[in-house]
């Protein structure tokens, strides 16, 4: 099946797609814990931003937790992940130490980037995560480049390349689509469609709003996925990963998701109603969804979930504590790492 020759198939999957498969208690508990970790981490980051402990731009992932969590579980060591500036959760999902991530947010010496990157520029190559890129859409060709490297080395690793509904309109995204399809690169392009590019809704920015169709002109099969359902995300991701490992070329997943907070901490989000946000929170919250499944299956009750919440909070508080008390980078660090040493 040549990616470039095959007629692409764009499909929309409903909420039930992933949910139907039998899922183990352990898996659900893992998802619950990991998503909760992201949420509490981001809430804490938001709080610390409000206290002036975090500067600059700070884009929170609250509401979108199921996307990165479900996708990460479809990956194996050696696969790579790259995204834009909304990257704290991707760092945590890739196994980065929450202390080091939080210390990067506070701009301290033991931050993952030694305090030189900040919220938007974080990397953990050990976990296969390569940033954390601040220019909207620029990570699309970079991610295709990781796919290129896999193909060049003839390993069966895949490159997951995230971007948002806003970046989906950048020209270089299409350039990346074209070459990824032309060369059958093992790239999973993931559009995290949270419906708003900063303050501009998809309906105001995009001629054809079915972003999963964006690859069709290049023969890239696309699928719209319920990004609020971690099981649906995981199932769609498994399938996409299998296609890429089988050398069938790139795949496009449109994750329908929602961010509860503003674009960044400085965004009052006046472009949408409070009702819209609270409706999603009440009806579609990705963490509540897993919590309900755990309770319904008899795997958990309020007490056991409270224990999880407590453990997660403790880990986040520890990270926050560390990040506040860690020292600022040494002045000598200003001039290190400009160039790599041979």
């Amino acid at each position: 099946m040549a990616g470039a020759k095959k007629k692409s198939k764009t499909t929309k999957s409903g909420v039930k797609q992933g949910g139907k498969a039998a899922v183990s208690r352990e898996t659900l508990e893992t998802y619950y814990r990991e998503m909760l970790m992201i949420r509490r981490f981001e809430e804490k980051a938001g709080q610390m931003y409000g206290m002036g402990l975090i500067g600059g731009f700070c884009h929170l992932y609250i509401g979108q937790e199921a996307v990165v969590t479900g996708l990460q579980h479809a990956l194996e060591p050696g696969d790579s992940v790259i995204t834009g500036y909304r990257c704290h959760a991707h760092m945590l999902a890739a196994g980065a130490d929450p202390r080091a991530v939080m210390a990067e947010l506070t701009g301290r010496a033991d931050g993952v980037s030694k305090g030189k990157g900040g919220s938007m520029h974080m990397f953990t190559p050990e976990g296969g995560f390569y940033g954390g890129h601040g220019i909207v859409g620029a990570q699309a060709p970079l991610g295709a480049g990781f796919g290129f490297a896999n193909k060049y080395r003839a390993n069966d690793r895949v490159s997951v390349t995230y971007f948002g509904d806003g970046a989906a309109n950048q020209g270089q995204v299409f350039e990346a689509f074209n070459m990824a399809a032309l060369w059958k690169l093992p790239v999973i392009f993931v559009i995290e469609n949270n419906h708003y590019a900063m303050g501009t809704s998809v309906t105001r920015s995009t001629a054809i709003q079915e972003l999963c169709q964006r690859g069709e002109a290049f023969g890239i099969p696309g699928q719209q996925v319920d990004g609020m359902d971690v099981l649906a995300v995981q199932a769609a991701s498994e399938k996409a990963v299998a296609q890429c490992r089988a050398d069938e070329g790139p795949v496009l997943l449109e994750m329908m998701t929602y961010r509860y907070r503003g674009h960044s901490m400085s965004d009052p989000a006046k472009y949408r109603t409070r009702e819209e946000v609270s409706k999603v929170r009440q009806e579609r919250d990705p963490i509540e969804h897993v919590r309900d499944m755990l309770v319904a299956a008899g795997h958990a009750d309020d007490d056991s979930l409270r224990e999880v919440d407590k453990a997660v909070k403790a880990e986040v508080n520890d990270a926050a504590e560390f990040a506040q008390n860690n020292q600022a980078p040494d002045a000598a660090e200003l001039f290190t790492d400009i160039m790599a040493e041979a």
């Binding site: 970079l142 480049g145 020209g171 350039e175 990346a176 070459m179 032309l182």
Partner: peptide, 26 residues
């Protein structure tokens, strides 16, 4: 052709692909 690669006319795209490949160690 694996190591000498003709690209489409798409400078931002292939520069980015090259940079990604370099980040991956090529």
């Amino acid at each position: 052709a694996r190591r000498v690669i003709d690209t489409p006319i798409t400078e931002a795209g292939f520069a980015g692909i090259g940079i990604g490949a370099a980040m991956a160690g090529l």
